[in-house]
Design a protein around this nucleic acid. Structure first.
Length: 454
RNA sequence: GGAGAGGUGUCCGAGUGGUCGAAGGUGCCAGACUCGAAAUCUGGUGUGGCGCAAGUCACCGUGGGUUCGAAUCCCACCCUCUCCGCCA
């Protein structure tokens, strides 16, 4: 959620950002060439806010009257005994009337606030000036590439995709997953189990080396925490599994459980930047994505991930530097695995609500003959912090205690093991169908190669 | 799951339905004392909304209710602790 003051002070900036991102807050505002839907959207937001503020100030006036009336009623006890009853009766009657009016007005005010906040929460974060504007994949900007892609033609064989490899080597069992849970669930089998854990362990080690405090996190979280982080568990095309008869959801990422840890807290400035890493399972419904890049492990309902998370002071220079640092760590991890990748600066239309800027790492996946997203890091600035109320107290200036400010919150994937497995299997496959283990993982796996099977 | 106790500000902790945004302590900031520090003393110090300001409104786990008036009484829920049961 953005600071509502932005709506009052710089409405045109909000409108332009809605255009850049193509975010529709109100479904009933038409998108025709003749109409400026973004300006109309902002106008309606301003009107919702105005309605709320008018009601609020009326309600507060009424409450002051109530307070004055109560004080007067109490003062009656100082009068001589024989005058008290006569003085008290009209005050109590006036108080009753005030109470009824106040109750009505309060309900109206609450409703107006809900209406405003519901809409305002759909307004996305501001967008980094360097973020490419656009809505199509082609609008993303490639920042750089790393690593050498293998020339399979020169090696004399056609690369298989990870699913073919994994099935031939008996590393995954999708059939049992489908039987026991449903489509897109799977069992890892044999060496894949150890490889999966080795990837986790490797990523955790690097996170720790960079000063991240390690956590395993809950795999469920309350709806209000999800809301605070900008996920929409109740939205129509939600990616989130909800637990029936509860206010809990399965988390789609440890970003939720790590980001929610400090909700409602005011941190001492010296605790910043606060770096945490979390190992969790991730559950995603992948609603609406059937058929899209859905083969094998690439898009599944459950996987395991090591997530990096940072809370910084609320200055853009600081959080942007941290964002670069998270990206560097992600690169370090995939360099250490020897996987060719490129870094993408995600276009405005694809950022999602909370992100101010987002970099993705895409590994080369020979089986697809294309790049595939393996990690992602976002600077969400204060967008999540505002709703979660995560603040910090800046150092005193001239001996004067400073007001709390919102922290900036950033997240990044250290490793998502499902996608990393895809990349490792496809890039390290051999002509004989076996898969060589990346060197750094060998001590963690306890073997150097999977297969070939006899 | 059963029984009991409890959730108050940075923290600890008091709080008879009105004088309570809240005693006291602690922490923090400034000043005094000191060569300096410690100790001591004095003053200041919650968060948010509206307002140029004076000010005003809200917040004592959350949400309802009673009342002219609720931190205080009632109900529900959440959480913590103790004991019992069950269990990896």
């Amino acid at each position: 959620m953005l600071d509502i003051k932005l709506l009052r002070d710089e409405p045109e900036r909000i409108a332009q950002n809605l255009r850049d991102r193509g975010t529709r807050v109100f479904t009933d505002i038409a998108d025709t060439p003749a109409s400026d839907w973004a300006a109309q959207t902002v106008a309606r937001l301003v009107s919702l806010d105005g309605t709320y503020r008018d009601l609020l100030s009326a309600a507060e006036d009424l409450r002051r009257e109530q307070n004055e009336n109560s004080a007067a009623t109490k003062a009656v006890s100082k009068l001589p005994k024989d005058q008290q009853a006569a003085a008290r009766t009209p005050l109590i009657e006036a108080g009753r009337a005030l109470r009824d009016k106040e109750k009505q007005l309060r309900e109206d005010t609450d409703a107006a606030q809900r209406a405003r906040d519901e809409a305002w929460a759909l307004v996305p974060n501001l967008t980094h000036p360097d973020t490419p504007r656009g809505h199509r994949d082609a609008d993303h900007a490639e920042l750089h590439q790393w690593g050498q892609r293998r020339d399979f033609a020169a090696e004399g064989f056609v690369p298989k995709d990870h699913l073919e490899l994994a099935e031939a080597l008996d590393l995954v069992d999708f059939a049992s997953g489908a039987k026991v849970v449903g489509q897109k669930f799977y069992y890892l089998v044999n060496e894949a189990v150890l490889l999966d854990m080795a990837l986790q362990r490797h990523a955790l080690e690097i996170a720790r080396k960079h000063g991240f405090k390690l956590h395993t996190t809950p795999d469920l979280a309350r709806v209000e925490i999800l809301d605070g982080l900008g996920f929409n568990p109740r939205g129509e095309s939600t990616q989130v599994y909800s637990i029936a008869n509860s206010d809990l959801c399965l988390v789609g990422t440890a970003e939720i459980t790590l980001g929610g840890m400090l909700a409602d807290e005011i941190l001492e400035a010296e605790r910043l930047p606060l770096l945490v890493a979390g190992l969790s399972h991730c559950f995603r419904t992948e609603a609406g994505s059937h058929g899209q890049e859905s083969r094998g492990l690439y898009r599944v309902h459950q996987f395991t991930k090591v997530e990096l998370f940072a809370f910084t002071a609320g200055d853009l220079e600081i959080s942007e530097a941290m964002h670069a640092r998270l990206r560097d760590i992600e690169e370090e991890i995939f360099q250490s695995l020897g996987l060719p990748y490129r870094v993408i600066d995600i276009a405005s239309g694809d950022l999602g609500g909370p992100a101010y800027r987002k970099f993705d790492l895409e590994a080369w996946m020979p089986g697809r003959g294309d790049w595939g997203e393996i990690t992602s890091t976002s600077n969400c600035t204060d967008y999540q912090a505002r709703r979660l109320k995560i603040r910090y107290r800046p150092e005193p200036v001239d001996g004067k205690k400073q007001k709390p400010r919102m922290v900036h919150m950033l997240n990044g994937t250290a490793v998502a093991t499902s996608r990393a497995l895809v990349a490792v299997l496809e890039n390290y496959q051999q002509a004989d169908g076996s898969v060589v283990i990346p060197e750094v993982l060998r001590p963690l796996c306890g073997f150097e190669r999977i297969g070939p099977r006899a």
